[in-house]
Write a protein that binds this DNA or RNA. Structure first.
Lengths: 172, 172
DNA sequence: TTTTATGCACCGACCGGACGGTACAGTAAT
DNA sequence: ATTACTGTACCGTCCGGTCGGTGCATAAAA
């Protein structure tokens, strides 16, 4: 059921996320959808929760065993922007709908609030903040298809971000 | 008329941007609105154009006379994230509606595409890219109220970004 | 064993309200 | 009288949500 909703969001765009559309995708009637989710908001909430969990999982998967400083930050960079428009097209498409509803945004805010301390514990604050911002910037610009970089440039930037995460160093 | 539309977007949120709402805000009937803008899309287009022009103006206003390298980039940082949620709450609120319509996004994309070369001409590419990304990241996170930083932390980051723009240097 | 009852998953017709857009009559200024 | 604009009434569509009902599997009662 949630899979169907995600398929609609990714395939048709977030504005087209209609109860009927989800029903069609899930080969179920609208009543069937409403049986599982009391309201559309509940459906969206479930979608958001799922996306957040997936994001968590993605980073933990790339987490190395080495506890050297900056490795967590590096894993975060890789997991977030390692490849352009990675596996989380869902969160991407979802954001524009969720953004307009404070109640739905709350868990997302919470997620972000906890993320910085989690990834930047073992590196100087300013470095962590800078890399965090640049990474989110790239992610969000990808999401809105606003990134002005070529593929090669993007790859260079990601590499540099990962380097900076682990080693610090000078910005050319 | 556009002022009224902006007031609605800022005050009620982007989803509430209704032709009726604009009409009420402008103390005009819906017919009056439709006389000026043949469709809602036309209204949104005008809004987008205006926002882009304003953003241009904001940066040019902060442009110093000194032609030292990095000064343009520095002005861009200041203009974009100098103070939290500055004067462009309009673009902020607008983005979530515009994002779902490729036709409306086109000029925005164009704007972003041209911006990086414009601000990063006289500094090394990687530095410009990094600062650009971090700045946009901060701007977008502010927009979605997702920024995990305290006011003081934010100020520190902006200062550091401006420094890096003008001088380069090491990331701690 | 047959009958009846209970609960679950699902169906789909319908409602009400919102919204973009249209038609057209009215009105004030020139 | 013409122009430039306003106000109102209305239409069609879309969408979230409701509601009575259906098939069906299992259980309880006879």
């Amino acid at each position: 059921m949630l899979d169907a909703a995600e398929a609609v969001v990714v395939g048709q765009g977030a504005v087209r996320l209609t109860l009927d559309a989800v029903a069609r995708q899930a080969r179920v009637s609208k009543g069937g959808v409403m049986y599982h989710f009391p309201s559309k908001e509940a459906l969206l909430q479930a979608l958001v929760t799922r996306a957040i969990e997936r994001s968590h999982a993605a980073r933990e998967k790339l987490q190395p065993t080495s506890p050297a400083p900056g490795q967590v930050l590096r894993a975060y960079v890789r997991a977030s922007v390692g490849d352009p428009l990675g596996n989380d097209r869902v969160s991407a498409a979802l954001l524009s709908v969720v953004a307009s509803d404070p109640k739905l945004m709350a868990p997302v805010r919470e997620f972000f609030r906890k993320r910085l301390p989690a990834i930047g514990k073992d590196v100087p604050f300013e470095r962590a903040a800078l890399i965090h911002l640049a990474t989110e910037g790239l992610w969000l610009m990808d999401l809105f298809k606003l990134s002005p970089f070529t593929r090669a440039q993007r790859a260079t930037i990601v590499r540099r971000l990962a380097e900076l995460a682990a080693d610090g160093g000078a910005v050319p």
